[in-house]
Simulated scan of single mutants.
Amino acid sequence: MNRAALAAALRALHVPGDPVVLPNVWDAVSARVVAAAFPAVATASAAVSASLGHPDGEGVPVDEAFAAVARVVRAVDVPVTADVERGYGLPPAEIAARVADAGAVGCNLEDSDPASGVLVPVAEQVEFLGAVRAADPDLVLNARVDVFLRPGGSFEDGVARGRAYLAAGADCVYPIGLAGDGIAEYCRAVGGPVNVGHGPGGPAPGGLGALGVARVSFGPGLQRLLTARLEVLVAAIREGASPYEP
């Protein structure tokens, strides 16, 4: 499929109640494993940053970040959506161009400043998202809502931001940190596709679908689980055991 067809395929997977499940990846190997089981692949910025030896929060040099996306795209034949944080300080049109040049057909964009963590004013974020959308009408745009990462984050503010971002051209909104009873209420209130992250203790992906979610992601969770397992294996080797024994 060409890029427009891949983007359309990814967009069509965002169905409230029957979510696209995206176990996030960080390199070609993890991407191939996921693509063998799921219809699309998503990167996670924290996992990519860790794999490249840089801190999350736009600590990866911009060329390295997009090169990592390109390696994932080359490894699979399904649509790829890339977590590009807040765009690494690039202008909106260049963000869209760099995503396209890497071969991805979707991207995540955050609404807080990666350096300070301060939420960007809604009007500024709406203008930003609208400019990215205008630069690439095919791009599947997942707009992150960071309100719920802040202590005491207002549910009403999160809903208002989600509605505004959808109106600005986002295909899906991602209220990261939202959990529990608020998920179903948020999906109803926003009135468009919602991405919810699955983590320890939260509803399973199927359960999130029942709450009205359209997209389920895992962030760096899988990489962290594998890293923890690797630490156990390395400790066994240090003690003279074989990592291949049960």
Rank of each mutant, 00 (worst) to 15 (best):
F128M: 15
E58A: 09
A68L: 04
V99A: 09
V69A: 11
A68N: 12
A93M: 01
D83P: 07
E94N: 07
T81N: 05
A67F: 08
A65I: 01
A97L: 04
D63W: 09
V72H: 10
D77W: 01
L109V: 15
N142F: 01
A135T: 09
V132T: 06
V69W: 05
G103C: 13
E94L: 12
N108I: 12
S112D: 13
A67V: 06
F128Y: 15
L90I: 11
A135W: 05
R71P: 00
L139M: 07
L109E: 04
V80N: 10
E127L: 13
A123V: 15
E127C: 00
P137V: 05
D136Q: 02
D56Y: 12
L109I: 15
E58Y: 04
Q125I: 00
V60E: 05
D101I: 00
V60Y: 03
V72T: 11
E127Y: 00
D138W: 02
A104M: 06
E64S: 15
P91Y: 06
S116A: 14
L109K: 06
R144T: 07
T81A: 12
Y88C: 02
V126K: 04
G57A: 15
V126N: 07
V132K: 10
A135G: 08
A135L: 07
P55M: 13
V105H: 01
P55I: 07
A100N: 01
F66S: 11
E64F: 07
A104T: 08
D63V: 14
V80P: 03
E124A: 15
V84R: 02
P114D: 11
N108T: 14
R133T: 10
D113S: 12
V132M: 07
